[in-house]
Deep mutational scan, measured.
Amino acid sequence: MQGVVKVNSALNMRSGPGSNYGVIGTLRNNDKVEIIKEVDGWYEIRFNGKVGYASKSYITIVN
């Protein structure tokens, strides 16, 4: 499943599904990501070869 990031500035990509996990990357508005699965309001995603987590509130699913 594919998604597009929708933010005003930047979205942190984290090592786990929560804001208490470390930041491993930064996503920008309109970045395209691969959604692997949903975990407690977060998406596990793949972006630029990295796998991490981002809040699903800021990612819109596209077909």
Rank of each mutant, 00 (worst) to 15 (best):
M1G: 11
M1W: 11
Q2T: 12
Q2H: 15
Q2C: 04
Q2R: 07
G3D: 02
G3R: 02
G3T: 03
V4N: 06
V4W: 03
V4D: 03
V4C: 05
V5I: 09
V5Q: 01
V5G: 05
V5Y: 00
V5T: 04
K6H: 11
K6M: 07
K6N: 15
V7S: 14
V7P: 04
V7T: 11
N8P: 11
S9I: 11
S9Y: 11
A10M: 13
L11D: 04
L11W: 02
L11C: 06
L11P: 04
N12T: 13
N12S: 14
M13R: 00
M13C: 04
R14W: 14
R14D: 01
R14N: 08
R14A: 06
R14K: 09
R14F: 14
S15M: 09
S15G: 11
S15E: 12
G16T: 01
G16I: 01
G16K: 03
P17A: 06
P17V: 03
P17M: 03
P17G: 02
G18E: 03
G18S: 06
G18C: 03
G18Q: 02
S19L: 14
S19Y: 10
S19M: 13
S19V: 12
N20K: 08
N20F: 10
N20H: 14
N20T: 08
N20C: 06
Y21T: 06
Y21E: 04
Y21Q: 04
G22H: 13
G22D: 15
G22W: 06
G22N: 12
V23Q: 07
V23I: 14
I24C: 04
G25M: 10
G25Q: 10
G25E: 11
G25N: 08
T26C: 06
T26P: 07
T26Q: 10
L27K: 01
R28K: 14
R28C: 05
R28L: 15
R28G: 12
N30V: 03
N30M: 11
N30R: 07
D31F: 04
D31L: 04
K32N: 14
K32E: 13
K32D: 08
K32A: 11
V33M: 05
V33R: 00
V33Q: 00
V33H: 00
V33T: 02
E34A: 04
E34I: 04
E34K: 03
E34R: 03
E34P: 03
I35A: 02
I35N: 00
I35R: 00
I36A: 05
I36G: 04
I36D: 04
I36K: 04
K37D: 09
K37C: 05
K37Q: 14
K37F: 08
E38N: 04
E38D: 11
E38W: 04
E38L: 07
E38K: 04
E38F: 06
V39W: 10
D40W: 05
D40Q: 08
D40L: 07
G41L: 08
W42G: 00
W42E: 01
W42D: 02
W42L: 02
Y43C: 03
Y43D: 00
Y43M: 06
Y43P: 00
E44A: 06
E44N: 10
E44S: 04
E44P: 00
I45D: 00
R46W: 15
R46A: 15
R46Y: 15
F47G: 05
F47M: 08
F47H: 15
N48R: 08
N48S: 10
G49E: 14
G49D: 14
G49F: 06
G49Y: 05
V51Q: 10
V51I: 12
V51K: 10
V51C: 05
V51L: 12
G52Y: 03
G52K: 00
G52D: 00
G52W: 01
Y53S: 01
Y53M: 02
A54V: 15
A54Y: 01
A54E: 01
A54K: 00
S55G: 11
S55K: 12
S55C: 06
S55Y: 09
S55V: 13
S55H: 12
S55M: 12
S55W: 08
K56W: 04
K56R: 08
S57T: 13
S57P: 12
Y58T: 11
Y58D: 13
I59R: 00
I59D: 01
I59S: 01
T60V: 13
T60N: 13
T60A: 12
T60W: 11
I61Y: 06
V62H: 12
V62C: 05
V62E: 12
N63Y: 02
N63D: 13
